[in-house]
Design a protein around this nucleic acid. Structure first.
Lengths: 344, 344
DNA sequence: TTGAAAGCGCTAACAA
DNA sequence: TTGTTAGCGCTTTCAA
């Protein structure tokens, strides 16, 4: 508190080296093709280094409207599939000098709106949005202000915003083929929230694959979870059971729903996979350590983050033409203990 | 891309309402005790609202050196104990309008140094540091520039920087009393990294509690892990076994080390808790779902984050006098399946 | 090849 | 009670 050091500015370096601030600015410009004497550049750089100069991003950002800061919007950082995505994003952006402002929406639209404002106020150069609902009018606002957005994991219904997603269709079909091969013919589905592209895509894939495999999917064999949450998995599997529609396997739209479903099954005296086989989606971290081992589909969480960063980088540096409207990453079937032959 | 909306500025509102920018600035000042006509204030606020005005934090930050942005330094976001801490911090800061820049050090000093610069360049108002080593000369630099720092989970050796920690001593003693009550007299310890306060504090508590309980802690019954990582847990328990020092229980400095240790035990044909009882520390998320259920000490992860935010807030608003040099949060013994009676 | 000057949007003396 | 003015630190056009 006593003696507070003032930050070193271009002016300080200018005074020290006896040149004008603008010359210092030019010498320190990383792209720095501005025809300065080699000697002057060297002297300035060395002095800057010696004095511990760090650029003031507020000042340069105010001037150039580039802050070297990006916003990352996720539903909830305590959901374990997001941290690897963040690390993936960071792995490309951080070495380039970008910092990340991370915000949690908890899937609440009003929170999302406020948090997008938080990012806007700070002039982020771009946004990685991993919490976007299928319809999100706010995104247009953001983009129309010149801030590029890329969605991750989820996508908007309408085109226009680049998205990085996993191959949901293939994932669901791998799962269902696996169940089919194990002998299952009556398969129920706990679908994800209708408002999210993942929920919708997996549900549609469920229907299509069922048809392709010639599996009956009677009315009532599908139910929508309101959130991707264990509790919803419990509630939905309970309701499925109450309906009396017979099924020997249960395809859940993600791992958390599956975990909840298995628990609810147990509470009713049913075993997994003895009485009903269950599958998940995502292969979230630590899933392999939880018995009986959920059979699921692994999405490339880290890669998805990297791909998002790559796309955003192009968008932020005026190379929008190099960006695919949608990038679909491959998935992988992970067979563990929750799938067995159907009972009886 | 076509029609890029320009952001609304104070000037726009001034023009619209027919007053001077400074008047607008005053009217919109949240603390706003600046003697303006009630009527004018209302008109300006309403206009700002209607036009969708959002303050430019770069500009105000440049002027006031308060950015309403904080930095959060953690070792690795994929380590599940950190997300709850972040949510705790955010729960207080976000409603106040603060944004968080989150950086991962991977416990590498050179990364930490660079990342602190990243935060500095952006003029963060304060830093929550959850990745601090016992000795960290860089912290003084940061603080001497006027940026308050509070450490979380870990603390510096020397005083001066407020810390929020959990009661490591009590945690270890709860664990060891529990083992002692179960009949264990030969207890080994996998200590955490020496460079971290958590490693050191738990090791010291181990020694003190052993002495108090009259337990022999022969040479070689303690080993230092180089990182808080499953692989180190495996390596260390293997080496402990190789040394031939007999033990019936193994106190690990955290859950990850314990998880690794149990796995290594299994690889050698030893069972837990049959052959050796094992304990952890932290009670990380999902631990309860992993068999046989690690007996551990629960730290209040979310609360620790909240407490850190509280302290930082005081530091940032000139109420340093209200800040305790150290805040120690209570812990709780969580008994699960990895502790049983000693063999033979 | 370098310097001078303007200005990004905001706040805070100081004046009136 | 409101307006004027200066300036935070930086980049960039224009001049020299």
């Amino acid at each position: 508190m006593s003696n507070m050091k003032r930050a070193i500015t271009l002016k300080d370096i200018a005074r020290e080296t006896g040149v004008h601030v603008s010359t210092v600015s030019r010498a320190l410009d990383p792209n720095g093709r501005s025809a300065l004497t080699e000697d002057v550049v060297m002297r300035i750089r060395e002095t800057a280094q010696r004095m511990g100069y760090r650029p003031n991003r507020l000042a340069s950002g105010l001037r150039t409207s580039r802050t070297m800061t990006v916003g990352i919007v996720i539903p909830d950082i305590t959901n374990t599939i997001f941290p690897p995505i963040l690390r993936g994003v960071e792995s490309l952006l951080e070495p380039l000098g970008y910092a990340s402002i991370i915000v949690n929406t908890d899937n609440a639209v009003e929170r999302e709106a406020r948090l997008l404002d938080v990012l806007r106020e700070r002039g982020v150069d771009g946004i990685v949005h991993a919490a976007v609902p299928r319809e999100d009018p706010r995104i247009d606002d953001v983009v129309s202000r010149g801030t590029p957005v890329v969605t991750v994991n989820r996508r908007l219904d309408r085109p226009g915003i680049p998205a990085i997603v996993s191959d949901e269709e293939h994932g669901i079909s791998l799962l269902m083929e696996h169940l089919h091969a194990a002998g299952h013919r009556r398969i129920a589905h706990i679908a994800g929230p209708e408002a999210l592209s993942t929920g919708q895509a997996r549900l549609r894939a469920f229907g299509q694959t069922a048809a392709r495999l010639g599996i009956e999917a009677p009315t009532g064999s599908t139910i929508h979870a309101l959130r991707f949450h264990e509790r919803e998995g419990m509630r939905c599997s309970g309701e499925l059971l109450d309906r009396g529609v017979p099924f020997t396997a249960l395809v859940c739209a993600n791992d958390r729903l599956a975990l909840g479903a298995i628990q609810a099954l147990g509470a009713r005296g049913l075993t997994c996979p003895g009485d009903v086989s269950v599958t998940g989606f995502n292969d979230m971290p630590f899933l392999d350590l939880i018995p009986p081992g959920l059979t699921t589909v692994r999405i490339a969480q880290y890669d998805v983050g990297q791909a998002a960063a790559q796309v955003l980088l192009r968008l932020m540096t005026g190379r929008a033409d190099e960006v695919a409207p949608e990038t679909v990453l491959p998935v992988q079937l992970v067979c563990r203990g929750t799938v067995g032959p159907p009972r009886g």
